[in-house]
Simulated scan of single mutants.
Amino acid sequence: MSTSDKFWDSKAEGYAKSPVSDEETYQKKLSETQATFSPEMRVLEFGCGTGTTAVHHAPHVLHIDAIDISQNMIEIARRKASESNIDNITFTRGALTEFNADTASLDAVLGLNVIHLLPDRQSVLTEVARILKPGGVFVSSTGCLGSSYLRFIKLFVPLGKFLGLMPDVFVLTESELATEITNAGFAIERQWHHGMKDINVFIIARKI
Rank of each mutant, 00 (worst) to 15 (best):
S140V: 13
S123Q: 15
M196S: 10
S105I: 00
M41Y: 06
F152N: 04
I64E: 07
T97Q: 14
D87R: 08
G51S: 07
S70G: 12
I199R: 11
T142G: 06
W192E: 10
G94Q: 12
A184H: 03
A77R: 05
K197T: 09
E32F: 08
A66E: 14
S21L: 08
T90C: 04
A95K: 15
G14T: 00
A178M: 14
T173E: 11
E127V: 05
E32I: 07
S70H: 12
S105Y: 00
L117S: 08
N72H: 12
H60M: 06
A178I: 11
D65E: 15
V171T: 13
D5P: 01
F156N: 04
W192S: 06
I181L: 10
I153H: 01
S4L: 05
P167N: 11
F162K: 15
E24H: 07
I115P: 04
A101E: 00
D87G: 04
R151H: 11
Q27N: 14
M166Y: 07
D22I: 12
D5L: 02
I208D: 12
S82D: 13
K133H: 00
F99D: 03
S82K: 14
Q122T: 08
Y15Q: 10
W8M: 02
R151N: 13
I69H: 05
G135F: 04
I181D: 10
S2C: 05
V61S: 03
H193Q: 08
L62T: 10
S31A: 10
I74K: 05
R121C: 10
P167G: 11
S38C: 00
S147A: 14
A104M: 00
I89V: 08
E180D: 14
F156M: 07
H60E: 11
D87W: 03
R42C: 02
L125Q: 09
T52H: 15
P134W: 01
G195K: 14
F46K: 10
H63Q: 12
I203F: 03
K161N: 07
N88G: 03
S84P: 00
E180S: 10
G94N: 13
S84I: 00
T3H: 15
D68H: 07
I208K: 13
